[in-house]
């Protein structure tokens, strides 16, 4: 019988229980991180210091491309090889009510009671880029709890929500057959960020076309950049028949080596740290500005609508009235003159 989590009122008291891998303690810790309560910050700081062992794998792709199903199959394979898998599955919040339907875990039900798999669903709650604000805190918590691979599944994304690449060691982009031609494949954006390309639903007859388009796109890129540490593979998978899954797991393991053992990997880890620092600062700034902006914005929006002033000037006015520390745009104006 495990001690009730409700008695562990302080987050600090949960840290050791998280490290011991207790599901309810892990769960409560993630909730506290998500709510952004200042009470949890010291505990999260301790968790951050102990994290850093897990291989963070990001999975992204358009809605309906089969990300969740693939994550489920992938987790099964990793389990068969003895690894423990944490999954952070992100779904969108409604822009109107703020509510969300989190349905990713329905597709992962084959391992529903396996203690070596931990699935946590998260809503975006207004965060952009396909991620949720507390997703990286959740990754650290799962890392410290002993999950050696942590998969982040982004919301179904469009063409340029690419934050996941700045948060994961290995980024997998899932494409589904029938969604576009070779011009889609050479466009900038999401297809550029893949360390591994997956074409899902390869039991469908039009999958070959998509595989060929992606491979050609990569060859085009290679002729321009020359050889690199990592050749991005294009892997066709079918979650129905199991095709390609072993190949995918092998590619992930190979890329783990690149991420942790090479100069390229070291640079990537530094870029991840940069991104996280910036993102956290942004969030703190928004948190501090939040209510003041909401109050100040209404009259300014009214003036914008009447074309009383232009969006740039009014936005500066908004920042001046609501930013802690007072006006900033004079400073930026000055730096412009200096240039």
């Amino acid at each position: 019988m495990t001690a009730p989590v409700s008695r562990a009122s302080s987050s600090l008291a949960l840290v050791e229980r998280v490290a011991a891998g207790e599901p309810a303690a892990i769960a409560r810790m993630i909730s506290r991180a998500e709510s952004g309560s200042s009470e949890a910050r010291e505990a999260l700081a301790r968790i951050y210091k102990r994290a850093g062992r897990a291989h963070i794998v990001g999975i992204t792709g358009v809605p309906g491309s089969g990300k969740s199903t693939l994550v489920g199959k992938l987790a099964e394979k990793i389990r068969q090889q003895g690894g423990k898998v944490g999954i952070v599955a992100i779904d969108p919040s409604s822009p109107y009510s703020g509510g969300a339907i989190l349905g990713d875990r329905i597709r992962m039900s084959d391992m529903a009671t396996d203690p070596g798999v931990y699935i946590r669903s998260m809503a975006t709650r207004g965060a952009t880029g396909g991620m949720a604000r507390a997703a990286l805190d959740a990754v650290d918590i799962l890392d410290v709890a002993g999950f050696d691979t942590v998969i982040i599944e982004t919301v179904g994304v469009g063409q340029d929500e690419v934050e996941i690449v700045r948060a994961s060691h290995t980024t997998i982009v899932v494409s589904a057959p029938g969604l576009g031609d070779e011009i889609q494949a050479i466009k900038a954006g999401i297809l550029e960020i893949a360390d591994i390309h997956v074409v899902s639903k390869c039991d469908r007859s039009d999958a070959n076309r998509t595989l060929i388009d992606l491979k050609q796109m990569l060859m085009l890129g290679m002729t321009m950049t020359g050889p690199t540490d990592w050749q991005t593979p294009v892997i066709g998978t079918s979650s129905v028949s199991g095709t390609g899954l072993d190949e995918l797991v092998a590619a992930i393991v190979r890329h783990r080596h690149v991420a942790f053992e090479t100069e390229t990997g070291r640079r990537r880890q530094l870029a991840i740290a940069h991104f996280r620092l910036r993102k956290t600062a942004e969030n703190l700034l928004l948190e501090r500005m939040g209510e003041a902006v909401a109050r100040a914005a209404a009259p300014l929006a009214d003036r914008l609508l009447r074309r009383d002033a232009d969006p740039y000037s009014l936005a500066n006015e908004l920042l001046d009235t609501s930013l802690p520390g007072g006006p900033v745009h004079e400073q930026s104006a000055r730096s412009k003159v200096a240039r």
Binding site: S93, S94, Y96, S97, G98, G99, A100, I101, L102, G103, R105, I106, S109, S121, A123
Partner: peptide
């Protein structure tokens, strides 16, 4: 529940 602003996880 979603329209009332809640996060809803459905198990299937």
């Amino acid at each position: 529940l979603r329209d009332a602003g809640m996060d809803v996880i459905y198990t299937g």
